Amino acid sequence: MIKTTSSERFTFRNAEAADVDAIVALVQSAYRGDDSRKGWTTEADLLDGQRVDSAGVEDLIVKPASRVILMESGNDLLACAHIARLGEASYFGMFSVTPTRQGAGIGNALLAEAERVARDEWNAREMQMTVIPLREELIAWYERRGYHRTGIHSPFPYGDQRFGIPKRDDLRFERLVKPL
């Protein structure tokens, strides 16, 4: 699908195995390390280490009822997100926008596309996600787009370096939901 902003054309497509390295680099740049500080979605003050690994991304691409959506402008990867079917709901995660392009509407467009796929192609009634509650600015962004906090929490996977190296001992996840 081709969409446009006021000054740019971009396309959405499903990720393939050949995209894994670019996806890992994008996700890492959006959340961890100094590059992530160029945007506003950084987790660099909360976590070190990796956000995703190649094997995990490849698994998401090939898993049934799972899709990694890429947003591109020409040959440039601007953003990605993972969605998965969960019965009558869908899960949204691994949402990453190139740090220097954050705040330009790219995230809005990709979130809308992910919701469209979940609603129109998978007949999902609800989109779910998990967010670290300490990330109030990010939660507020999602709330402005119709998501609400559920108060349902799950533990952070301390000790599993596939999810990063925590800098704090009070991390956990909260589920956000939006009716579709």
Rank of each mutant, 00 (worst) to 15 (best):
L176S: 02
D120F: 09
L78E: 06
M94G: 01
R172C: 15
K38V: 00
E113V: 09
I83Q: 07
E126A: 12
R51W: 11
D21H: 15
E113M: 09
S7T: 12
A44V: 06
R144N: 15
D120W: 08
Y147Q: 08
G74M: 04
P157S: 02
A22G: 08
Y158C: 07
H148T: 15
R135F: 05
A44R: 06
A124I: 03
Q50G: 13
T41P: 02
R144G: 15
Y158N: 07
G74C: 02
A140S: 14
N123D: 15
I152E: 15
L180M: 12
K178I: 02
S7V: 05
Y147C: 06
R162Y: 04
L26G: 06
A81D: 11
K63E: 08
L111S: 05
L138V: 13
A30P: 03
V97P: 03
V27N: 05
T41Y: 11
I69K: 02
H82I: 05
W40E: 08
Y31Q: 01
P179Q: 14
Q102W: 01
Q50I: 15
T130N: 14
V62W: 05
V24K: 01
L110R: 03
Q102L: 00
D59E: 09
I83E: 05
P155K: 14
D53S: 10
V117I: 15
T42H: 12
L26S: 09
L176M: 11
D169S: 13
